[in-house]
Amino acid sequence: MITVNTRENPWREGLTVQALLDEMGFIFRHIIVRVNGEFVPEEAYAQRQIADGDDVQVMHLIAGG
């Protein structure tokens, strides 16, 4: 298990930030990702692996007119 935005979420071997975003349906471009508090730049999403027990924060900035 990992937590995503403080909610429990299933984990699997080899899970990357990009794969997690895809599975969560997080397509909004204006986001900030942190894993265990460490900022992950967008260009690293495909490589950055998420370990079992990690705390992932995917902060969507405000949208809406």
């Binding site: 935005n5 403080t6 997080f26 909004f28 924060q57 902060m59 969507h60 405000i62 809406g64």
Partner: peptide
Amino acid sequence: WLIFMDMVNNQ
């Protein structure tokens, strides 16, 4: 407009 902060980010 707080939907992302509330519903998605759980902030």
